[in-house]
Design a protein around this nucleic acid. Structure first.
Lengths: 162, 162
DNA sequence: CCGGAGGAGTTGTCACGTCAACTCTAGGTT
DNA sequence: AACCTAGAGTTGACGTGACAACTCCTCCGG
């Protein structure tokens, strides 16, 4: 089927350049987040997701689905963030299972700050340097890549045309 | 200076789509590497870098420079890979410092395999789905992003035109 | 009512990645 | 020679991420 010959130099260079750019961008943004808001990328993702739920408590499974994270990862992350005072697990009824996840006041404050600051950093490092052509190409490529690699996916707000 | 207003929905969507695609792609390739070659992305990077040195022993600092990794990270990674039998630290003279890093026979075998298999996976998941236009746009964007964010960088084979 | 299947969360383990502190050596200064 | 400083590597601590095993509960069939 797929003949496995080594990558041509220019193929390798494209791949390497893309990986490098992607990694540098993510690292830069994560450092900004850490420096300006004292939170990590993972914490940001959780804070924003809960922030968007507008007060409604989410379940671990919903968080995992929305973020496309392993549920174990979500649970670990929540444990750390609970320790930092950003989120609260509220348990339903008598049993230990079935926890609802909500932001604390501190978590809401952090989310509000981070959305502003991090949004600005994303503009500066990612959006602003894009030419309109690059933006549309990257948009299209991202959409197709996600469609190709995301296993299930239905509830999203994605309406990317082919 | 930079007015910090929240991202517009379509700005956010572009960012989110890109992040998601990038993450899915990296995860998919890493899984392939683990499944087919039983090595991690980090191990792959080190193996390939040493492989390309064609027998010459590299220093920790050279590895860190080439990979753009923190030297502590390199050291940790080498410790793990030494334990797996992929690399060897050879110490110069009487002192404990100044180690040269080389591949073992096992490491050479793993590198040869991985270059083929992983190369095929990169083709399948990244290169082949790209249209020539997308490839050139992504190439240009990657080059400029690296130039903008990489602090020093000089010895590279990068000749990306503006 | 009992027992098993399955789903939701949690926990453990291990590798990765970052940062800062530490060690050892070499080289320069006095 | 004694000092001290800069560079190279190592180490430790901690958060992140992937994966599998485990616990509880619920539900369903007998």
């Amino acid at each position: 089927m797929t003949e496995t010959r080594p990558l041509e130099p220019e193929e390798w260079e494209l791949w390497d350049a893309w990986m490098r750019a992607q990694r540098l961008l993510v690292r830069e943004l994560e450092r900004g987040l850490q420096r300006d808001c004292d939170i990590s990328k993972a914490e940001f993702s959780v804070l924003v997701t809960l922030w968007r739920a507008a007060g409604r408590e989410l379940r671990v499974g919903e968080l995992a689905e929305t973020l496309d994270w392993d549920k174990g990862r979500v649970s670990h992350q929540l444990t750390r963030m609970e320790k930092r005072g950003f989120v609260r697990r509220t348990r339903y009824g008598t049993d230990g299972r079935r926890a609802g996840i909500g932001l604390t006041a501190e978590g809401r404050r952090a989310a509000r700050d981070a959305v502003l600051v991090h949004g600005g950093n994303i503009r500066r490092h990612f959006l602003d340097p894009l030419t309109p052509e690059q933006a549309s190409v990257i948009r299209a490529w991202s959409g197709r890549t996600v469609d190709r690699l995301e296993p299930h996916r239905d509830g999203g707000a994605d309406d990317s045309a082919s």
